[in-house]
Design a protein around this nucleic acid. Structure first.
Lengths: 199, 199
DNA sequence: GTCTATACTTCGATAGAC
DNA sequence: GTCTATCGAAGTATAGAC
């Protein structure tokens, strides 16, 4: 159970293939599907290779997490650079790929003590940076950050988009249209207010 | 794998003990912890008994789900009978026990094909009834159901409370206070508006 | 009607071969 | 630096004893 043992190089192509396969499994079947055997078979490799490159399965999952977080940050920066940052951010959050991964890593952190702290810490840091960046973007386009606190906006977008995605995965759609309409109307209102407090 | 086989009586005390133990495990460690061995050991019984009373583990989990759903309905009816139905409903949703179970059964449905349809169907029916009841309660106390659509209110309370609970399980609290304040203020406003459209 | 002995599968992980 | 043979624990489920 995760002692001192020789590990493969981080630059290894095989290692990258394993991370890639694991990420696909998380997307398609959830983190529970990420077993050494399943990951290996998805990558057409031997199961034991997983434990050559990663001390534990959790370590592999954390590698997937880090990779995803980096990509999300890039996409977020792009979204916030838009003239309508809130709309762009909402679109990013409601992207299927993003919502699925967010859900899975929350569930993972909730269920596996070993990765809990690492994911929780990273998420909190992430959240703080996210709020700061949204704050900057909102000020840039002239939205009142007191009337519309960036922290609450980030939280709302995250909770609404992920939960709706979780539900629609199960073909539960009741009430969704109404809620989406509400969110979009609200975003439009806020973005339309841009600059008005500058006069 | 779940063929025709003799099963224990539904009225059996042992059976009830197993369901009870399973529910506790779901609460404390999540649905993944609900294995035949763990449930049995929690109830101080032999592991094989689980499969005497339940054809599959999924069947046991569905029994837990049904039991919870019934209890939740009772508590909801009580909440909606209050003079401040929205506040009472919010309190119910933010109850730790409720949020945890909701999260777990969503995750379960998301990950286990066999229970998916059953949980999804039950949840959708549940949601429809819930919206109808909230609608009735809001009309009773005189809240405008056009300005504040019950469907969106139910969705919002559910998404916000469950996601915040998921996060605070991981000690992620950033942005929570702001969001809770926002929700409470909004609820107060809506409830204060009660009856005003009657004049 | 109630419980147990047992089969079979899959899992994570390690030690050691190339 | 890369991969493989293999162990032990835990999982679900069944057939059969009381």
């Amino acid at each position: 159970m995760a002692t001192q043992r020789r590990l493969g190089a981080e630059s290894s192509r095989t290692r990258a293939l394993l991370v890639e396969a694991a990420e696909l499994l998380v997307q398609e079947e959830g983190y529970v599907a990420v077993s050494a055997r399943r990951v290996a078979s998805r990558a057409d490799l031997k199961p034991q290779l997983v434990h050559y490159y990663f001390r534990t399965m959790d370590e592999l999952l954390l590698a997937v997490f880090d990779r995803f977080a980096q990509r999300f940050l890039d996409r977020q920066a792009q979204a916030l650079a838009s003239a309508r940052p809130l709309t762009a951010l909402w679109d990013l959050y409601t992207d299927t790929f993003v919502a699925v991964i967010v859900i899975e890593f929350f569930a993972l952190a909730n269920h596996r003590a070993a990765v809990r702290d690492k994911i929780a810490g990273a998420t909190e840091q992430f959240r703080i940076g996210q709020i700061a960046e949204l704050d900057r973007a909102m000020r840039r386009v002239g939205i009142d950050v007191v009337a519309y606190p960036p922290s609450a906006i980030v939280m709302l977008m995250m909770t609404i988009s992920t939960t709706m995605k979780m539900e629609s995965n199960l073909d539960i759609e009741h009430g969704h249209a109404e809620l989406v309409a509400l969110v979009k109307r609200q975003i439009d209102e806020v973005e339309a207010s841009a600059g008005k407090d500058r006069n």
